[in-house]
Write a protein that binds this DNA or RNA. Structure first.
Length: 431
RNA sequence: GCCGCGGUAGUAUAGCCCGGCCUAGUAUGCGGGCCUGUCGAGCCCGUGACCCGGGUUCAAAUCCCGGCCGCGGCGCCA
């Protein structure tokens, strides 16, 4: 056979009546009516029906041989027929079996029988063939393209920072050690310090790349390996980069609504447009509102997930910024406000979830050194970073966004794992 | 790590509270049969399961203890 396929299911229709085509995909289902047999062939875009009559012994034999999820190419002609789903079907002249799937399948791909989350991730490759899974990754891809285009439009360039790093970049979170030619190194927990250095030359940079955290976190929105969307922008403060962020997110939502409406419908998810500007509410006001509603909130501490759920209800917003966080709850590179208590920082919250966080960064070396010391970190360990602040660092600001978390909100998924092809968490290392 | 809930054929579930009538029901898958327009095709026959260990009892899927595993919530986490 010269070609595995000439047309995708999405490229076929009754208008191609009589055309010779080759379709390829997976055996989605078989229906045997005796004298008439229907083979439903699924590809990345959908399902086409292949109809087999009694007369062709070889095709009937192939039909009986085929198992669910086997891969085949079907050579045949398109026939418009109102009785067929979509108004057309394929009348085959030949069936080429590429790979025969074992039975029974460890997971139902067709969607008739549900599976537990654990089973689904154990059988992830089959799970990824389900309509819902394919819809999720289509949406995520549309969002990624939108994010990139919006950032390019604002003059950002895409960069890559090292993922093998020498030191615990910021003290805090636990790192995965790696053996590096006899020296100790770690998987990067964030591109933070390197993207700042890059903003010191390219001015507007972004990176979409993995980050690793060896945390004990065991929730539906934490992974030990996740994709972080990061920007850093020179001659900007947190107000400027909040504007960038809301534009990026609003653009992603808009594109998904336009380009992936079919997928949203399939997922039964109503994605509402984001109206700009997104509301800004200060941390202090958030705490006050929560306290007034009877919540117990420790002033100065991070807000918990239940707090964010409650806050979203109270202020009646799906999407909002919490700005001006207490300085002591933020990392050393965050610019404090003049009062010394709060900081030029923000979280971007969607429903109950922190999607992104960012800040104005400190660009003066003395202040960075002071802040490292205040947090019990040794400035010498940060010399690879601090050195460059002697040579003209611009004022700058930036943010980092969890791609899968954004994806949850775009798709209505309840777990970041759904947005991750092969998630890595405390327990899962395979597949 | 803490709290709650759970673990029954390949998959998903019923049964468990109130032990015996469970030879463990159903759906889907799988095997076989019927059917020339199915579209979650239908109908008939068949196939296959109580997480592991201990205990209570005449009797345990069911009650108790321990373990392992999972899910949800929280915590941890820039």
């Amino acid at each position: 056979m010269s070609k595995y396929r000439t047309h995708l299911s999405s490229e076929l229709g009754p208008n191609l009546d009589g055309a010779s085509v080759v379709v390829a995909g997976w055996v989605h289902a078989k229906r045997d009516l005796g004298g008439k047999k229907f083979l439903l062939l699924r590809d990345k875009d959908g399902v086409v029906q292949v109809v087999i009559g009694r007369d062709r012994k070889d095709l009937v034999e192939a039909f009986y041989t085929l198992t669910q999820e086997s891969t085949v190419s079907v050579v045949g002609t398109v026939r418009a027929d109102p009785r067929a789903p979509g108004g057309f079907e394929i009348v085959p002249s030949g069936i080429v079996i590429h790979s025969l799937a074992k039975t029974p399948l460890p997971l139902d791909v067709s969607g008739k029988v549900p599976a537990d989350v654990d089973t689904r991730f154990r059988e992830r490759v089959l799970d990824l063939r389900r309509d819902e899974s394919r819809a999720i990754f289509k949406i995520l891809s549309v969002a990624l393209r939108a994010i990139r285009e919006e950032l390019y439009g604002m003059g950002f360039v895409e960069v890559f920072t090292p993922k093998i790093v020498a030191a615990a970049t910021e003290g805090g979170a636990a790192l995965f050690p790696v053996a590096y030619f006899g020296r100790e190194a770690y998987l990067a927990q964030s591109p933070q310090l390197y993207k700042e250095l890059l903003a010191g030359s390219l001015e507007r940079v972004f990176e979409i790349a993995p980050a690793w955290r060896a945390e004990e976190s065991d929730t539906p929105y934490h992974l030990s390996e996740f994709i972080s969307v990061d920007i850093e922008m020179a001659f900007a403060n947190y107000e400027t980069v909040m504007n960038v962020l809301e534009r990026v997110v609003a653009r992603a939502v808009k594109e998904v609504r336009e380009v992936a409406s079919r997928e949203l419908k399939l997922l039964n998810h109503e994605l509402r447009e984001i109206k700009l500007p997104v509301r800004r509410i200060t941390y202090s006001d958030s705490v006050r509102i929560l306290a007034e509603s009877g919540e117990k909130v420790e002033v100065g501490e991070d807000l918990s997930t239940p707090h964010l759920r409650r806050l979203s209800e109270l202020i009646e917003e799906d999407v909002y910024f919490i700005v001006d966080w207490p300085d002591r709850a933020r990392p050393f590179y965050t610019m404090p406000k003049e009062d010394g208590v709060f900081s030029e920082s923000f979280d971007f919250v969607w429903n109950y979830l922190e999607i992104a966080s960012g800040s104005t960064r400190v660009h003066r070396k003395e202040l960075l050194v002071k802040r490292l010391e205040e947090r019990g970190l040794n400035p010498e360990n940060f010399s690879f970073f601090l050195k460059w602040f002697d040579y003209g660092m611009p004022p700058h600001a930036g943010w980092g966004m969890g791609l899968a978390r954004l994806g949850m909100m775009l798709t209505g998924a309840r777990n970041v794992r759904e947005l991750t092809a092969f998630p890595r968490d405390k327990r899962r290392l395979v597949p």
